[in-house]
Amino acid sequence: MRRIKVAALTAAALLTAGAGVAVARNADSGAPVQGDRAVSKAAAPFQRTFGDLVTVAAGQIGNATVSCPAGTVSTGGGGVNVGLVAGADTGRSFIIASFGGTTGWQVTVRNTNTVQEGIRAFVVCTTP
Rank of each mutant, 00 (worst) to 15 (best):
G78W: 00
A58F: 09
D36R: 09
D89G: 06
A11P: 00
M1G: 15
Q116I: 00
N26A: 10
A38T: 14
L15C: 06
Q106W: 00
R120I: 05
F99K: 10
T16K: 11
R3A: 13
R37G: 03
L84E: 07
N113T: 04
V82Y: 01
Q106R: 07
A27S: 12
R110L: 12
V21F: 08
L53P: 12
A64R: 00
V33F: 13
S29M: 04
G83V: 03
T126L: 04
R120W: 01
A13M: 11
G101P: 06
T114Y: 06
A12Y: 11
S29K: 03
R48L: 03
F50G: 06
D89F: 09
F99Y: 15
G71N: 10
G83K: 03
V107H: 04
V6P: 05
T103S: 13
A86L: 08
V80T: 11
V124E: 14
R37I: 01
V124M: 07
G78R: 00
S29C: 04
S67C: 01
P45T: 03
T16E: 14
D28P: 01
A22G: 12
V107K: 00
A8F: 08
G30Q: 07
G35H: 09
T10Q: 09
P32Y: 02
L84P: 06
A38K: 09
A12V: 03
G18H: 06
V23N: 11
A31C: 04
L9P: 05
R2C: 06
S93Q: 11
C125M: 02
G62C: 02
A22I: 08
M1D: 15
V66P: 00
R25L: 12
